[in-house]
Computed example of a mutant assay.
Amino acid sequence: MLKHISHTLFKNTFIEKLNQKSVSTLICLNLNKVKYEEPRNINSNSKDYVCVYSFPFIRHVSIVNRLKFYQTLVTSLSLPTMAVLSQQNILPMESLITGSIVGGALCAALLSTGYFINNLIGYIYYNQKTETAKISYVDFWGKRKNIEIPVVDIVPICDTKPSIHDKLFISIQRYSTKDTLKLNLNYGVIYDTDKFQKIL
Rank of each mutant, 00 (worst) to 15 (best):
C51T: 07
L31I: 10
V23I: 12
L96N: 04
N127Q: 09
L183K: 03
Y137L: 02
Y187I: 04
L29T: 06
F140D: 13
T132A: 05
K143I: 09
S112A: 11
Y187F: 14
S54K: 06
I97Y: 10
K134H: 09
I170A: 07
L31M: 08
G142R: 07
T193Y: 04
S54F: 03
V52F: 03
I154V: 15
P39K: 06
A108N: 09
F169R: 01
L79Q: 05
A105W: 10
K195T: 05
I101S: 09
L120Q: 06
P80Q: 06
V138E: 02
G122P: 00
R144M: 11
E148V: 15
N184W: 00
I149S: 04
A83F: 09
L110K: 04
Q20H: 12
T98W: 07
A133T: 14
Q128I: 11
Q20P: 00
F14L: 11
K68P: 00
R174M: 14
N43V: 05
L85Y: 07
T72F: 12
S24R: 14
H4Q: 10
C28S: 14
L181G: 03
R40M: 08
F57I: 07
N12Y: 14
I190G: 00
N32L: 09
V64E: 07
C107L: 05
S62W: 02
Y123R: 06
G104D: 10
A83R: 03
G122N: 01
K35P: 02
N89G: 10
T72I: 06
N43R: 12
W141M: 14
L185Y: 05
L29Y: 05
T25Y: 05
K11N: 14
N119G: 01
Y115G: 01
K161T: 14
P156L: 03
D159L: 15
R59F: 09
N119E: 10
L106C: 13
P162G: 08
Y115N: 08
S163K: 14
K161A: 15
F116C: 01
N41K: 09
I121R: 00
Y123K: 06
I121A: 00
P150F: 09
S163Y: 07
V23F: 12
S136T: 10
K198I: 07
C28G: 13
K33H: 08
I135C: 05
F140P: 02
K143Q: 14
C28P: 00
D48R: 12
E94A: 10
K195Y: 06
P156Y: 06
K17P: 00
L185V: 02
V189F: 02
G142W: 06
H4S: 11
N19T: 09
N118Y: 05
R144F: 06
F14T: 04
K17Y: 11
S62R: 08
S22L: 10
T81K: 08
V155L: 14
F55W: 05
K182L: 07
I170P: 00
Y70I: 11
I121C: 02
S78R: 01
R174L: 12
N146E: 15
L168P: 00
I149L: 11
E37I: 10
Y123F: 15
H165C: 13
Q173V: 05
Y175A: 12
P56K: 10
N119I: 01
N186I: 06
